[in-house]
Amino acid sequence: MTHSDESLRQYLDGNTTDAQAAAIEAALESDPALERRLMALDPYAGMVADAFGTLPGDERIKHLRAAIPVQQINRRVLSWASGAAMAASLAFGVVFGAQVWPGGQSASADWRMEVARYQALYVPDTVAHLSSADGKLATELDRAAAAVGLSLPVDALANVEGLILRRAQVLGFEGEALIQLAYTDAAGTPFALCIMSRKDDGDGAETLAGMSTYSWTEQDHSFILVARNPQTEVSRLANAFRNNIL
């Protein structure tokens, strides 16, 4: 059965009977030429394409392109997370550096990437058992703050926009102290705020090791917030930390 342009236009305007519409739709299943004709006759396609064609704006495109990772994500590191080696490393504390990563792969000199890779191994169960209720937290935070030469009052950092502080620990990267404040959100999702006593060029949102991160520098210290949550949320929370720490 052939369908005239007129009958196709009537179909597109909703002016056919259900039986006629069903016949056209049945024919579309096996007739690519009919499909092309119908698409070409559709008077709405152009107006919708015009309305959406200017989106998104140039600034948005620039930011989105800048966030595409330069290097491919190394899945081997992530799959390694399930191994017993990681459980042992977590239990005894981890020193960041080339020797931590298996398979002879060289660790990046970039501490932000290392922090993101480490945090990529965190799951809710990694931090679920940590209680923020006992008095240990203030002591832990004091010890960690001292390691990077900062003063970090527990009152300002125990609850930041609903993120609850669970643990503060001292780690290391290339022989320098690196501290990690482990947080969870209301859903139990782990977040990490890491701080080093070094100047860094990190500034703003980055996707690293598949994680959303936001970095900034204050005087002689570099900060990064890392989580698996959407980037907009991580950036918003990072700015809340930035305000609380200053």
């Binding site: 989106l55 495109i61 392109r65 980037q231």
Partner: peptide
């Protein structure tokens, strides 16, 4: 990227969520 963002917007209905979805799509594709 612009086409992925427009499709993300059509799914999520919100520009801010479309940003996250676009970003996640780029990372996953790599």
């Amino acid at each position: 990227v612009p086409a992925i963002w427009r499709f993300s917007l059509s799914l999520s209905g919100r520009p801010d969520v479309a940003d996250d979805l676009t970003q996640a799509t780029c990372v996953r594709a790599l």
